[in-house]
């Protein structure tokens, strides 16, 4: 337990943040230099300096946007996961379980009915609306059902089932949508362009800053709602703010990368092991770790079966499920 305290203190400090940042930087450089197009060391540095047309294109127009979307995806989903776990006081809460993802998914499927030219603008808006309404209803139903640890998960399962039925219905109606929705539901960073990333980056960045600012309020929620309220927290408005932030961050990711599971569940748990319940550090560590994990999963998917590649959603599920089961064993009986 003594070691645990030292570990937590380390990752709640700037030195800990620096370590995680360096880790992310390593994976970033690896992702930039490795891939199905072979480059020598010299060629790589030349391309970095905009020399050699073909390699420059690969680096700056193929790999870099993909890397940036990977990092952004990890940050967005992890922050969303930390928020949802804090307001529901439930370690199993995550964007995919609470219904944030399937809610966003349903409205994105609907938005695919619109003409292609409108997708860039409307897909993110639809994704946010879907996520927000789904989260709100899950939390509302759970509170009506007694607000216990299991009621959150059960109402999430119920809402998810309903939303997925609607999604199946819509994709049945139109085979074009079935194909594009299939790609969307697996989740991938292939073909993401810089213009798709501007709005999500701004939204996720702003949300993360707000989270870090209000983290001291969120931290009080771990004492339970009554005690937090007696310590001066306006629970109702804090809950709404957190739901909005969780929906914004998760749906921003959904809008460019599709439905990517498990990051929002796994990363907050690893971060919690590292920095304990200090929510401010938890947000910072989750953001760095989320970027690293998602980028690493994408890198593995890209180079494991070269020249063909696995979408990041599949790689993450392969890694995520065993981790999730290990977590269940470790925390035996706590859920």
């Amino acid at each position: 337990m003594r070691n645990r305290k030292l570990l937590n203190d380390f990752f709640c400090s700037y030195r800990g943040y620096l370590c995680l940042f360096l880790l992310l930087l390593c994976v970033f450089i690896a992702s930039l230099s490795l891939g199905s197009a072979k480059m020598s060391f010299v060629e790589f540095f030349n391309a970095l300096a905009f020399k050699g047309r073909e390699n420059t294109t690969i680096l700056y127009n193929v790999r870099l946007p993909r890397i940036l979307s990977g990092i952004l995806c990890g940050i967005g989903l992890s922050v969303s996961g930390v928020l949802l776990q804090s307001i529901t006081d439930n370690a199993l809460a995550s964007p995919s379980i609470i219904g944030v993802s399937s809610g966003g998914g349903l409205l994105v499927a609907i938005s695919l009915l619109l003409p292609t030219s409108m997708h860039l603008l409307f897909t993110p808006i639809f994704a946010f609306l879907g996520s927000f309404i789904a989260t709100l209803s899950v939390i509302f139903i759970s509170r009506l059902a007694g607000n216990t640890k299991s009621s959150v998960i059960l109402s999430g399962v119920a809402i998810n089932a309903l939303l997925n039925a609607f999604i199946s219905l819509i994709t049945l109606l139109d085979s074009d949508i079935l194909i594009s929705y299939n790609a969307f539901s697996i989740g991938s960073f292939v073909g993401v362009q810089y213009k798709n990333l501007i709005a999500p980056a701004a939204l996720i960045g702003a949300s993360l800053i707000i989270c870090i600012i209000i983290s001291k309020r969120i931290e009080l929620l771990c004492l339970g709602e009554s005690t937090a309220s007696a310590l001066g927290v306006n629970i109702k408005s804090l809950r709404i703010v957190c739901i909005i932030l969780a929906s914004v961050t998760a749906s921003s990711v959904i809008s460019f990368a599709g439905l990517i599971g498990f990051i929002g569940l796994i990363v907050p748990h690893i971060a919690r092991l590292l920095c304990g319940h200090n929510i401010r550090s938890l947000f910072v560590c989750s953001a760095f770790l989320g970027g690293t994990v998602s980028l690493l999963a994408d890198l593995v998917g890209r180079i494991a079966f070269m020249p063909s590649e696995l979408p990041v959603g599949i790689t993450l599920a392969f890694v995520g499920v065993p981790f999730f089961i290990a977590l269940l064993f470790k925390k035996r009986g706590q859920y």
Partner: peptide, 20 residues
């Protein structure tokens, strides 16, 4: 809430023991 919390403090029957 905040003004109230400077005037009166409460310890409830059910208290939590988070990892802090």
């Amino acid at each position: 809430e905040k003004e109230r919390a400077r005037l009166l403090s409460v310890i409830f029957q059910k208290i939590k023991a988070p990892h802090i």
